[in-house]
């Protein structure tokens, strides 16, 4: 094929391209000026808006992201004015939040009556066991992670964070700095290998982990149950038993759990008489 033929072929397309470009240009210019015309009132209204939207003014479904879609009190969302963009802190994204901690959340109702059901509880306990090799093992991470940063973990796990139907539980122990030291993803982030039969064929393991009876002893019906598990690494009771948590206590408003619920000295390594401390000088207090 000759070169000129080739060019001829493209000619009709060229005309179409001019038309499309003209349309786009017109739209862009008019859009820009329409944006400039918008008054600052919308922006002022946005700025005075409280961080937590007043209850009842938003539709339920948009509660969690209500601050992303802003409009008049009931009207449709309005685009911000371009003229104001440069002046505002982070442009139109000033109050967009990608930090999950800062999303508006339902306040948990501490006083909601709950009727603990054995089945629901069992389901939670089962789900919990799936992530642990034995009672007391650090749970594995059921989602992909940032391989090199621990800071990312706390953006959700700093508080009990509800994300749709999932709950990112608050860290129940004091926050160590290096999360991945103990918690590893249950599936790797490393790229999978196609046809990798060698890895898949690793023999399984016969280890049977200890599962605690997971039921506190009550001295009598209605008495406060003892804590059936170790409190080692589980010092923050509300992480699992708080108002949002799956194993919710019937009385989440009470703060001092150990006042009524007794931990176990045996499980918590406090049975000093049968297991004395090392005889070496305690070195930390030199």
């Amino acid at each position: 094929m000759k070169e000129s033929d080739e060019l001829n072929q493209y000619r009709p397309h060229k005309k179409a391209t001019y038309v499309v470009m003209a349309v786009i240009l017109t739209a862009a210019v008019s859009g820009y000026f329409m944006g400039l015309q918008q008054t600052g009132s919308t922006i002022r209204e946005r700025q005075s808006d409280s961080v937590v939207p007043s209850q009842g003014t938003r539709r339920d479904s948009s509660k969690d992201n209500s601050r992303m879609i802003k409009g008049g009190s009931n009207g449709p969302p309005t685009a911000p004015s371009y003229s104001e963009m440069a002046a505002s802190d982070r442009g139109p994204n000033a109050d967009w939040e990608n930090d999950l901690r800062k999303l508006t959340r339902k306040k948990p109702n501490l006083f909601k009556q709950v009727e603990p059901s054995a089945q629901a509880r069992q389901a939670v306990v089962e789900a919990r066991r799936k992530l642990r090799a034995f009672d007391g093992a650090p749970p594995v991470i059921p989602h992909p992670i940032n391989q090199t940063s621990s800071a990312a973990c706390l953006s959700c796990h700093n508080e009990n964070t509800e994300i749709k139907d999932r709950l990112a539980q608050k860290v129940p122990h004091k926050t160590y700095q290096s999360c991945t030291q103990c918690h590893v993803p249950t599936t790797t982030d490393a790229p999978p290998m196609a046809g990798d039969t060698m890895t898949a064929n690793w023999p399984t393991n016969r280890f049977v982990g200890w599962t605690n009876q997971l039921e506190g002893k009550q001295a009598y019906s209605g008495g406060p149950p003892t804590i059936p598990h170790t409190t080692l690494m589980r010092k923050n009771c509300l992480s699992c038993h708080g108002a949002k948590a799956r194993l919710r206590t019937t009385h989440p408003w009470r703060q001092s759990c150990l006042q009524c619920h007794a931990p176990s000295a045996g499980l918590d390594q406090h049975r000093f008489l049968s297991e004395p401390f090392p005889v070496s000088p305690k070195t930390r207090s030199q």
């Binding site: 001295a219 019906s221 008495g223 009385h251 007794a262």
Partner: peptide, 19 residues
């Protein structure tokens, strides 16, 4: 819906009802 009494024995028995 019920009454329970602990007698003798267990030290846990002294705690008050939590309901």
């Amino acid at each position: 819906n019920g009454q329970t009494k602990g007698m003798h024995g267990s030290p846990q028995v002294t705690a008050a009802s939590n309901r």
